[in-house]
Amino acid sequence: MRIHCPCCGPRGVAEFSYGGDGTVRRPDLSVTDTDAHVAYVFERENPRGRHVELWHHIGGCRHWLLVTRDTLTHEITRVEMAGRFAGEAARMPGAGA
């Protein structure tokens, strides 16, 4: 399995560490409702098919990536920068690789 890191180009999976479901959003710090936090920490869909996951390029640029991966075929259809650098994939050095 290889992930095309927008920063580093296509790299082997051994350089990455899985960071869990990329679709969940942490409740704002001001939210003190336990249920909202329980949902964030524990409640997950288990989709058969396309899924957005977080991967950390821990042996590379150390950026966090949002990887769209099919849980059935393992096909990766999209990789983008998560959070802080969202939308900047095209400007990343690995964009053309």
């Binding site: 150390r62 966090w64 650098f85």
Partner: peptide, 13 residues
Amino acid sequence: LAHMEHYLEVVWP
């Protein structure tokens, strides 16, 4: 370090 990077890049950009 990974924990900090996660919060800085994903949760509180």
